[in-house]
């Protein structure tokens, strides 16, 4: 799923400082699962903004709404009534959401209320981690099912580099495991270490964002 983290309240307050009527819009997709942009977080952010503005003597009128999904035009429509007299909208969906809102409302000021951090998963309660960079051509099966493009700081396909020490990556002040140690250990367990002897050559990055904006069309699904 897409993982995000809340922007600091002060940053959001600064974004909307000139406005009196604001919509806070969440999403019931990924950001609900990672506890950053769902119904609950919409209510919390709205309350925090109200309190802060009241304290500064500049009261704010807020409407709250959480879309089924903010990455689908039909689920943006329910915002129509809420935004009619609004000055601005703060979206706490991943950054896809506010861009869908922008597409539907050409005259509305739209602000991101969270930072979209990565494609990843949860590790334990309150801990999420990145696993994929959406390079568009998955090759993890060559690496024991682990992704060095995402999880190696240097994106090595022929790792590990000289900065791997006791299973820890030199980047991240000791907090990040060396994915190449994990790849090595896993291939050793599977009896496939010979896979690592072969030199891996150039990756074609044209399927990644380097090839330009990616659009997927499934003709059989189009009406």
């Amino acid at each position: 799923m897409v993982i995000g983290e809340s922007k600091p309240l002060a940053e959001i307050l600064e974004m909307i400082k000139d406005f009196k009527k604001v919509v806070v819009a969440g999403c019931k997709g990924c950001v609900t699962v990672c506890n950053v942009g769902g119904e609950k977080e919409v209510a919390i952010l709205a309350t925090e903004l109200r309190i802060a503005r009241k304290a500064s003597g500049n009261e704010l009128e807020i409407k709250e709404y959480t879309c089924e999904r903010q990455c689908d035009p039909e689920y943006i429509e329910p915002l129509d009534d809420l935004v009619t007299d609004a000055d601005a909208l703060v979206s706490i969906a991943c950054s896809v959401g506010p861009q869908y809102v922008v597409a539907r409302y050409p005259y509305l000021n739209v602000y991101p209320g969270i930072n979209t951090t990565c494609i990843g998963g949860s590790q334990e309660h309150g801990v999420w981690k990145e696993f994929c960079q959406a390079c568009g051509n998955c090759i993890i099966h060559h690496f024991g099912g682990l992704c060095p493009i995402t999880r190696c700081a240097k994106q090595l396909l022929n790792g590990p580099c000289g900065g791997s020490s006791e299973g820890i990556c030199e980047v991240g002040k000791g907090s990040i495991p060396c994915i190449w140690q994990l790849i090595y250990d896993r291939l050793k367990n599977l009896g496939h270490l010979h896979n690592l002897v072969e030199v891996k050559l150039y990756k074609d990055w044209s399927t990644s964002r380097d090839g330009g904006l990616r659009t997927m069309i499934r003709e059989e699904l189009k009406k």
Binding site: A153, K154, Q155, N158, G163, E170, W205
Partner: peptide, 27 residues
């Protein structure tokens, strides 16, 4: 060479490239 990660240098905010790694550059 692949080179030291930019987080150790004087421009830790920079992007890195790593289109190739050292072994690919040798090739």
């Amino acid at each position: 060479l692949t080179g030291d990660h930019q987080s150790f240098g004087d421009h830790p905010q920079s992007k890195n490239v790593h289109d190739l790694d050292s072994i690919m550059l040798l090739h």
